[in-house]
Amino acid sequence: MTIPTLENNRVKLTLLGMSNYKHLIAIAQQPNLVYYSPSKIDTPEALKTYVQTAIDDYYHKTSIPFVVFDKLTETYAGCTRFGLINWHNKVLHIGWTWIGTEFQGSGLNMNMKFLMLQYAFETLKFDKVEFRVDERNIKSRKAVEKIGAKLEGILRKDTLMLDGFKRSTCCYGMLKEEWDGIKSEVFSGW
């Protein structure tokens, strides 16, 4: 599997690994950064385990994890990944995204999602991209809807959270045949 670097004038996404994850330790310790995620990242040990899992999935060809570098501020901002990659059915998920609070609402995430969607549809030639979002996470749900993904359904009480809560997960999708329209309507004006 080739290791892509996805980049535009705002953001650079490079392969997340043990050589660069330490740039994210301070960001990962921000309170409630992954409140709606079943992942634990708020200690250096937990973050290392999180990254090791992403790397293991990469070597099994089911994930491509990225470290996010904000070119505007010249700092590392967080991470994101392609996951649950199904090469046969040409479907993958975009998620596991967290960026520091100082980057939220800055347009960084929009740039990340554009590069990832463009790569998924135009380079990998995948047929569908999916997003999974905690039903309670209205901010992330609106962000996914803003980029043109459609709500396909809700998996009721399907994910056990760290605090014992059983969340319901909203499943969003975008099809390859929708991408050109979304690219010109959603991403052309920013």
Rank of each mutant, 00 (worst) to 15 (best):
T73G: 12
E74W: 05
T75H: 10
G78Y: 01
N86C: 11
K90E: 10
L92P: 00
I94F: 14
I94E: 10
G95M: 08
W96P: 00
W96R: 11
W98A: 08
I99C: 09
I99E: 07
I99N: 08
E102A: 13
F103Y: 15
S106Q: 12
N109V: 08
M110L: 15
N111K: 08
M112G: 00
M112W: 03
M112V: 00
L115K: 11
L117H: 10
F121C: 09
T123R: 09
T123S: 10
L124D: 06
K128S: 05
E130V: 15
R132K: 15
V133P: 04
E135C: 09
R136H: 07
S140M: 00
R141A: 11
R141D: 06
A143P: 06
K146W: 01
I147T: 00
G148T: 01
G148K: 03
A149D: 00
L151F: 06
E152N: 10
I154Y: 05
L155H: 04
R156S: 10
R156A: 07
M161Y: 12
D163C: 10
G164T: 07
G164M: 05
G164N: 08
G164K: 08
R167M: 09
R167Q: 11
S168F: 02
T169M: 05
C170E: 04
C171F: 07
